[in-house]
Amino acid sequence: MPEAATAPAALGDSEFDRDTAVIPREPGVYDTDLSAGWTIFGAVNGGYLLAVLGRALADTLPHSDPFTLTAHYLSASRPGPAVVRTETVRTGRTLSTGQASLFQYDTEGREVERIRVLASYGDLDALPDDICTSAKPPAIPPISQCFGPEDGPAPDADQQPIAERLMLKLDPSTIGWALGQPSGKGEMRAWFGLADGRDADPLSLLLAVDALPPTAFDLGIAGWVPTVELTVHVRSRPAPGPVRVSITTRNLAGGFLEEDAEVWDSEDRLVAQSRQLARVRRG
Score class of each variant (00 low, 15 high):
residue 228 V to K: 12
residue 217 F to D: 12
residue 201 D to P: 11
residue 192 F to N: 07
residue 191 W to F: 06
residue 218 D to E: 13
residue 218 D to N: 12
residue 217 F to K: 03
residue 192 F to C: 10
residue 242 P to Y: 03
residue 197 G to F: 05
residue 204 S to D: 04
residue 205 L to E: 03
residue 200 A to K: 00
residue 209 V to R: 06
residue 189 R to N: 10
residue 233 H to V: 01
residue 241 G to W: 02
residue 200 A to R: 02
residue 218 D to K: 14
residue 234 V to G: 12
residue 200 A to H: 15
residue 226 P to K: 02
residue 231 T to P: 10
residue 221 I to P: 01
residue 197 G to A: 08
residue 196 D to A: 09
residue 210 D to M: 07
residue 243 V to D: 06
residue 210 D to T: 05
residue 208 A to K: 07
residue 241 G to E: 11
residue 239 A to I: 11
residue 201 D to S: 14
residue 209 V to S: 01
residue 199 D to Q: 04
residue 238 P to A: 11
residue 230 L to C: 08
residue 223 G to Q: 01
residue 206 L to S: 06
residue 194 L to K: 07
residue 236 S to R: 15
residue 207 L to I: 14
residue 218 D to C: 06
residue 217 F to W: 02
residue 210 D to S: 15
residue 195 A to M: 04
residue 190 A to E: 08
residue 244 R to W: 01
residue 211 A to M: 11
residue 196 D to P: 11
residue 220 G to F: 01
residue 213 P to M: 10
residue 207 L to E: 00
residue 214 P to L: 11
residue 243 V to R: 07
residue 189 R to C: 15
residue 197 G to C: 04
residue 219 L to E: 08
residue 233 H to R: 14
residue 207 L to Y: 01
residue 220 G to E: 05
residue 204 S to C: 15
residue 203 L to E: 02
residue 241 G to H: 01
